[in-house]
């Protein structure tokens, strides 16, 4: 009996949280498309997410591309398939690793910062203060972050794609002694627009999810410093998990042959 009650209680808590997140998401999205807008806030968030994430995303992509080339060389040389390395690198980066790794890095960087900032604003009554100054906090705080996440992550992933492929090229040409021009032509040979587009769609979804989780957990944080800390952790963990789940779902939508 106790076991059933505990299971039921956990399930109810889960349903409640899901419902609350759904309501939050619906309200946040509706505020994204209805005026007034806050261009200054949107711009600030875009710079924060897009520009200041460039180093970390670039480095991640560079080393991922390099290690991909190295790994696939040592693997593929067992059955004389070294020629496929350039293709493997470009497909892995554009379809999977570019968006997922950029997403995870940005989740750690931006999702945490959003949850901490909004959470602190919540516990110091700054969010209530916004309301009393006739400013809707969903519009002023949440909508700009969602819009910035949605638009900036695809741009970051374009950069990550290019740098990642370049990392593979560096290792291929300078370490594995491929011919530079044939490596480049190999890279282009099997690359299709859909490979890149699917990666960018993923990036947009991930950017939205990161901002949503950061805002949601920050917005509902309570209880001072500890609450803000918990919100930050939850934002990063939930965003990371959602990125991985949605990565699978979107891949299924684009590339399922059945």
């Amino acid at each position: 009996m106790g076991f059933l009650a505990a299971t039921g209680r956990a399930f109810l808590v889960f349903l409640e949280a899901t419902g609350r997140l759904a309501l939050f998401t619906g309200s946040a999205v509706s505020h994204c498309v209805r005026p007034p807008f806050y261009p200054r806030q949107i711009l600030r968030q875009m710079i924060d997410i897009g520009y200041y994430s460039l180093p970390v995303v670039g480095l991640t992509a560079l080393f991922t591309g390099m290690v991909l080339a190295l790994q696939s060389y040592s693997g593929f040389s067992r059955f004389q398939a070294e020629g496929a390395i350039a293709t493997v690198v470009v497909l892995s980066i554009t379809r999977e690793l570019g968006p997922v790794l950029a997403g995870l890095m940005v989740a750690g960087r931006i999702g945490a910062a959003m949850a901490a900032e909004i959470g602190t604003m919540r516990v110091t009554e700054q969010i209530d203060a916004l309301s009393t100054l006739s400013t809707n906090p969903m519009k002023y705080l949440v909508a700009p972050r969602l819009l910035a996440g949605l638009t900036m992550l695809p741009l970051l992933v374009v950069v990550a794609d290019i740098i990642g492929v370049f990392g593979g090229f560096l290792v291929g040409v300078y370490r594995l002694d491929f011919n530079a021009s044939s490596y480049i032509s190999r890279t282009w040979e099997f690359l299709q627009p859909l490979d890149v587009i699917s990666g960018l769609v993923k990036a947009a979804v991930f950017g939205f999810l990161i901002a949503l989780m950061g805002c949601y957990h920050g917005y509902h944080s309570k209880g001072g410093a500890q609450g803000v800390g918990a919100a930050t952790t939850n934002a990063v963990v939930s965003a990371s998990i959602m990125i991985l789940v949605w990565n699978y779902l979107i891949t299924g939508m684009f590339f399922s042959t059945k």
């Binding site: 900032e117 604003m121 110091t124 009554e125 700054q126 209530d128 203060a129 916004l130 309301s131 009393t132 100054l133 006739s134 809707n136």
Partner: peptide, 23 residues
Amino acid sequence: PREREKMLHKFGMLFQGAALFDS
């Protein structure tokens, strides 16, 4: 919500911790 925002124009509030926007 829209009407409430209008109503809130009538109000000003000094919060306990001042609640200034630190950004």
